[in-house]
Amino acid sequence: MKILLTLLLFVTINLYGQDAILNQKKIKTKFDDAISVLNVGTFHMGETSDANSLAFDVNDENNKIEIKKLANILAKFKPTIIVIESLPKNDPIRQADYLDYIENPDKKFQKPDERELLAYEVGRLSGAKKIYGIDFKESYNYNIGSSVKNAIDKITVNKYWKLYEENQKNIVNEKISFYDLFKLNNHPQYLESLMNINADLLTYISSKGNAEGADEAAKFYHRNLVMFSNFNQIPVDKNDRIFILMGGTHTAFFIDFLKRSPKYKLENIFDYLK
């Protein structure tokens, strides 16, 4: 935990120094009416085909209590719009389901996940009336390495995997609390590691003169770009505040998109996750 706090302090100081330079030169990177966004990463809590899932019993009463506590913390952002990892075509059904939950917070879901358990509750507590899905499905061959003959840099790929597996093992062995695990899942360096292992790792898989791994990774990059395009189609005004809840790798992509966009102002999640 001390290491985590040290890293957060370093990131804060570093970013402050960069902002000071921009302010000194009077360079504006955001619209005056930029919309505040709280971009939150989560592990998938229910049944999912996603690789980034954990053994998490959504029916356990202690887990439910912990999620409710977290929802209360995140609801202090006071979003007016909730955005989740769901297909836009399902928005009418999802909106009706969400509004029903607002009226009946004791509602039972057949197979709840982080969307019903956390996003719905954050929205209910904050009074948000609108919920949107921005997901886009695009498959890619994550195991492309097994089919590339004469791959050039197998050593880096193997070391990459060992590093990731060691980190994951340490997380499991420490048996940290749900809240601390959620904080870890939103640490910038942890999010970058998810981006590395889910996409960038593939760029090290290639045969001479080719880019087999990069071609596959590009599909995952494209998926996230389309998700951001879907996000930009949500009707908003200057008074809106947007809460996004997605799997951590998508959150990592969106950090970069939101930082660069003049339309949005990315809020620091650790202003809420103390």
Rank of each mutant, 00 (worst) to 15 (best):
K274A: 13
A119E: 05
K169L: 11
P79N: 11
A151E: 12
K183E: 08
G17A: 02
L8Y: 07
V40D: 12
I13Q: 12
N173D: 14
I244L: 06
V236C: 13
V172F: 09
V83W: 07
F220C: 00
E116C: 10
Q24C: 05
A217S: 13
N39Y: 02
D237Q: 04
T80K: 05
N23L: 07
D237A: 08
L87H: 10
P112V: 15
P92D: 14
E121W: 00
V40R: 03
D32F: 03
T203W: 08
I21Q: 08
Y221R: 02
F43Q: 09
L15T: 06
Y190V: 14
V122M: 12
L5R: 12
D57M: 12
T251I: 01
N141R: 06
E114I: 02
G41F: 04
G247T: 10
I93Y: 10
K169F: 09
L9I: 02
I67R: 02
L266V: 08
Y98R: 01
G17C: 11
V236M: 06
E121R: 05
I27C: 03
I134G: 00
I27M: 11
P112K: 12
G209N: 10
K68F: 12
W161M: 15
A214S: 09
K64D: 02
D180W: 09
S147M: 07
G127Y: 00
P88H: 06
D106E: 12
G46N: 10
A214H: 05
K159V: 09
D57C: 04
N173P: 04
A96I: 01
I269G: 15
V157N: 08
S126G: 13
I65Y: 07
N39V: 09
G17M: 08
F220T: 00
R94A: 05
F228Y: 13
Q24P: 01
R223V: 00
N210Q: 15
K89L: 05
L258N: 01
Y164R: 14
S49A: 14
Y264M: 04
F136Y: 13
D271F: 03
K149I: 13
D237L: 03
N141A: 01
L8P: 01
P262C: 13
E85G: 01
Y204T: 14
I152A: 15
E267Y: 11
E166Q: 10
P92W: 06
V157E: 08
A214K: 06
S86C: 07
A119L: 01
E192C: 07
R223Q: 01
T203L: 08
E116R: 08
G123L: 00
Y190K: 05
K108G: 09
N196V: 00
L258W: 02
T48D: 07
S147Y: 04
S36I: 02
K265S: 12
D271E: 10
L266D: 09
N158E: 15
N158T: 13
I144A: 06
K208C: 10
F136C: 00
K265T: 04
S206W: 02
I176Y: 08
D256G: 04
L117E: 06
D100L: 00
Q110A: 13
K183C: 15
I234L: 09
N167K: 11
S126P: 03
D153R: 01
L4S: 14
D180N: 11
N62Q: 14
P262Q: 14
N232K: 06
K76S: 15
